[in-house]
Design a binder for these strands. Structure first.
Lengths: 189, 189
DNA sequence: ACACAAAACTAACGTTTGTTAGTTTGATTT
DNA sequence: AAATCAAACTAACAAACGTTAGTTTTGTGT
């Protein structure tokens, strides 16, 4: 059964190394060694080191974008939308944690065009999130805090979840979702 | 008035570059250019590229450690201690944001001994924080959520604050503290 | 058995990397 | 005026970098 292409295997292997040391500190020889082949052999499958990074990041960014769009279409309350967004991030984290590391830390090392596309996608995503929060405040469903503080505190928690999930012995995803929603939305007191 | 040594100037300049591109992507020639001198001239002041990183990270780690120790000595309630910790992070972020980027993202690129010291300091810090949270739960002051989820959601927000503070036009520190404490502790609903 | 394509290989390339060695500059002290 | 010293310089190094070119191996369908 050959379900994964060689290119996909390379990208998967590279993403783990990128997560550990960052894109710039990983050499193509490192990636090749992890694959059990020589560095030059990689170029039968990829165009270059940067392509790996771009595939990793842009594919994931698209996943966030389409997840956001799906949530925007639902006619739920702002608070319910935020809950859905938290669950979206957790789902992506659970099976894409390596790509998340690259997206968070190494996006600026993509080719210029890709960086520009990425930044637009990211700003759009944040703007959509911000709008949901503002609606929640306007409707009296959320506390009247500075929307930027709310956006940031939720988003930074979710964005770095990949660092922390998995080192704590894989706690159950549904338990994680429940407690995370509770903590982020209802606080800890 | 010569209040800052040349070495300190180099470290300050380097930390800005590290924040933008990460340690590995910054060359000593980049740092030299930012200083307006040649790369070789740096070595009159520093032992090597790694030394810059270690000074940045370990000095900051010590600051967190002594801040934590001061808070542990106070006889406040767990909740009050957490508020103090949030303020500690905000204070450090406001005037050390470049070093924070290195501490978060590039600690693994220090020399092995320094990495080991750092990891111990970090684990100790987290363990102290976790203990405070557990006490808060035990005393009924905090909601009975998974302590790890609480610890993580607070800490990850505070740790990445440096990314976000300053691009939003330097909102007032006291306002930031107040809203951040409110959001992290009392939630958003 | 043969042809073909996928995927590995060896060898090398031009650059860039961090760093060292030895020298010159410019200001301050004696 | 001579000596001192911090801090810059030029020149070069060996090693590591991403990548290319050309060749050989391996597996698959005919």
């Amino acid at each position: 059964m050959k379900t994964t292409s060689r290119k996909a295997e390379i990208i998967a292997e590279a993403s783990q190394l990128f997560k550990e040391k960052g894109y710039s500190a990983v050499t193509v020889r490192d990636i090749a060694q992890a694959m059990g082949i020589k560095a030059a052999s990689l170029y039968n499958h990829i165009e270059g080191k940067q392509e790996i990074l771009s595939v990793l990041i842009l594919d994931l960014a698209k996943e966030f974008t389409s997840g956001m769009n799906a949530i925007l279409k639902m006619n739920n309350s702002p608070l319910q939308k935020i809950e859905k967004l938290i669950e979206l991030h957790i789902d992506i984290t659970v099976n894409q944690s390596e790509a998340l590391a690259a997206l968070n830390n190494d996006w600026m090392h993509m080719a210029e065009t890709d960086v520009n596309n990425f930044v637009v996608m990211r700003e759009t995503y944040e703007e959509n999130f911000r709008t949901i929060i503002k609606e929640g405040i306007a409707q009296g469903q959320l506390q009247p805090r500075h929307p930027e503080v709310i956006l940031f505190s939720i988003l930074s928690t979710l964005r770095t979840l990949y660092l922390w999930y998995q080192k704590r012995g894989k706690l159950d995803v549904n338990l994680l979702k429940r407690d995370m929603v509770a903590v982020l939305i209802r606080g800890i007191v």
